[in-house]
Design a protein around this nucleic acid. Sequence first.
RNA 1: CCAGAGGGUUGGGCGACCGCCGCCAAGCGGGUAACUGCUUGGGGGAGGAAAGUCCGGGCUCCAGCGAGGAACGGUGCCGGAUAAUGUCCGGCUGAGGCGACUCAAGGGAAAGUGCCACAGAAAUCAUACCUCCGUAUUUCGAUACGGUAAGGUCGAAACGGUGCGGUAAGAGCGCACCGCGUUGCUGGUAACAGCAAUGGCAUGGCAAACCCCACCGGGAGCAAAACCGAAUAGGGGCGGCAUAUGGCAUCCUCCUGCCAGUCGCCCGGGUUGGUUGCAUGAGCGGCGCAGCAAUGUUCCGCCUAGAUGAAUGGUCGCACAUCCGCCUUCUGGCGGUGGACAGAACCCGGCUUACAGACCCUCUGGCACA
Length: 111
Amino acid sequence: MRGYNIIKKRSDFLAANRGKRYATPGFVLLVKDRQDDDPAIRLGITITKKVGNAVVRNRMRRRFREMAREMLGDKGKAGADHVLIGRDGGIDQDFAELRTDMARALDKLGK
RNA sequence: CCAGAGGGUUGGGCGACCGCCGCCAAGCGGGUAACUGCUUGGGGGAGGAAAGUCCGGGCUCCAGCGAGGAACGGUGCCGGAUAAUGUCCGGCUGAGGCGACUCAAGGGAAAGUGCCACAGAAAUCAUACCUCCGUAUUUCGAUACGGUAAGGUCGAAACGGUGCGGUAAGAGCGCACCGCGUUGCUGGUAACAGCAAUGGCAUGGCAAACCCCACCGGGAGCAAAACCGAAUAGGGGCGGCAUAUGGCAUCCUCCUGCCAGUCGCCCGGGUUGGUUGCAUGAGCGGCGCAGCAAUGUUCCGCCUAGAUGAAUGGUCGCACAUCCGCCUUCUGGCGGUGGACAGAACCCGGCUUACAGACCCUCUGGCACA
């Protein structure tokens, strides 16, 4: 229904650190192939308290999830974990701009 | 109209499309059933502070959280409200303001200990630097002894203040008024206030310093706790026997009770995960009644988020505020910007802190007019 599952374990987040990464002013995208038989795409979002208060962090997470809903099913890599790390450039960034960055990042790492 | 005081409400609005999380209904499918998957439709979805986690409760577990004491912590004018409070309401006293009103950790300093820098003679065992007055001496500058604490000096503060009498000079030494203490009467539930008599000044401040007094408080927390449930191990329940010793949530004593041993019988146990807890409650709205008020209450109506790597987002349109720039000019026009503080996590009652603006009510002091 959503096109992807949610990463829940801390160890999976840490494992994604060893995957490929692509950085933009608004976020950092990590992609790591799990190398198992499961073709499901998984997504995790991390935003530290350094970025802002709860309102700012919630809004950023929701915008990231909206982008993931739009394009992760098409452009995401099957069987891989995708982790988005929020950066403070993404607070005021225009959503359209954020989306083109996301498309570029997925194209680059999805191959 | 100007300046000000107190209090309340609101917290961006309307609309379109695409999404997210619960709930309800219907249809189709799976299942004996509980229930569950998909589709469609309907309806709901952050706050006044959701925040800080500073108090008070509910609820859950710790054997009863039972009695007394110690320790520790908290509270501190009086009365009331409340489930309860350190909160709220009403009052008292003191301080500030012309006033509306505001502020106050506001019990005890004649139980004890301690502190009060600098300055000053002296900061509470008290005392006398310059003065003042008397006597004696005198080289007429003063010195010695005694009296005194009114004046000067220092300071935030100086064994009560002002005036008159008195005196060698002075002093509550005497008197009047004020202040203070004690006693009595009156008013008030009380804090306290008023009046009268009397004492004769004896009693400086600090208890958000130790302390004393009165009152209150058992501890831990929804990651509490209960249930369902793959593998491995300690295990759990019931009954009999035993009752010495030890243990049971800050410590000691006491009471009631439980556990640790052994024998027999029976049951399997709970990390990840799931369900319950988990939203009908000290609930919200309205009329009336009681009360100065906080608040209480009869009746009527309403059901109002429930996530768990954690649901409210994305893209726009229309007006309305904000801010910026320009033109114009005393008020409009044009263009741009873009909505204060801030996100529920078991639930309530408070406090504190943050907050763009908008609206309303009551009151005070001025000015002007009728």
